[in-house]
Design a protein around this nucleic acid. Sequence first.
DNA 1: AGAATAAGTCAACAGTGCTGACCAATTATT
DNA 2: AATAATTGGTCAGCACTGTTGACTTATTCT
Lengths: 180, 180
Amino acid sequence: MPDIKSTKPSGVNPLFLREEELRQGIELLFYAYRDFTAGPDAILAEIGLGRAHHRAIYFIGRNPDITVSELLAILRITKQSLSRVLGQLVREGYVSQRTDEVDRRKRLLCLTEQGDALERRLTADQRARMARAYREAGAEAVDGFRSVLLGMIDDSASVSATLKDDADPPDGLPTRLRRA
Amino acid sequence: MPDIKSTKPSGVNPLFLREEELRQGIELLFYAYRDFTAGPDAILAEIGLGRAHHRAIYFIGRNPDITVSELLAILRITKQSLSRVLGQLVREGYVSQRTDEVDRRKRLLCLTEQGDALERRLTADQRARMARAYREAGAEAVDGFRSVLLGMIDDSASVSATLKDDADPPDGLPTRLRRA
DNA sequence: AGAATAAGTCAACAGTGCTGACCAATTATT
DNA sequence: AATAATTGGTCAGCACTGTTGACTTATTCT
């Protein structure tokens, strides 16, 4: 029994439209992420590293003096998984560690000059791609892009950098990482 | 030498702002994708499957009678990688294969009833998350979200479903898959 | 007949998650 | 001062998912 009061033309089921709209979003996210990671992956493969190394390098570069715990909270992987990646980055000279003098249990992570160079090389690809998409879509679209993505994140408080500008730090990462 | 004619307050370097803006986009994409995949991953782990199985199931469900080649073109992985995943899905009763009667080299893939049930269970999570983000952000934001993501995809023609509504099928997937 | 296409297979390897079981240093609590 | 909690690290093993490379089998196209 179709609803004759429907505002949609030709009695189209609005539930179907909604489903179609959501699935298109799901697919767009998949395709965009697939192509977004392809460039860096190719560079990483050349030097015997993987995507996990890029993630670590990226967030260390973005948050100098980040601790291991904080990095774990961003990446949402286990300590053992990160340890393997981080150990390799330190051994191969991309990341430096030093002890926090206030709390000597903590290790503060920074990129070396070599690490910074690799970070810029890897992310250049992604920045260019995003810049192109931003430019083509326009400023309003960029706002929408950001606002939808932000709404998809679990607890937007557990985000490393300046992705939101409200003032409540309920939990998750220390405020230090939310003031980039 | 700061530009005194700048429209930005306090002579902020526009290149820095652009860089910051792009990096926020990169991070939003990372966080959204991280949280977007977490739900399905947990369900998959219970039944001994992984994210690759979800992808295959998703796109088979979305494009009934898709061939192996077409699925490979969407996923951008090797035949061997897909074969492992697909074989398991067929053996465990999620996917059915039958020979194309027009070209008997081709295998047409479809979800079984069990496969369809799993697909709906897995994607329900993601649809709900996306629906919430869409609702909170509003229709205009959704348009922007889609337009930016679309701009990030390599060749928007090599996309499976109705993500664009222009009429040129330059190459990539057969037109059949572009008319969902 | 021969080339090209579509699919499948076996083997090996790398990267990246996971669990579980520990250890060591340091800091906080009682 | 003793105990507990936190931070970081390590070793071992396992699962999933991507990769190359080398073939085989059908089927279709030229």
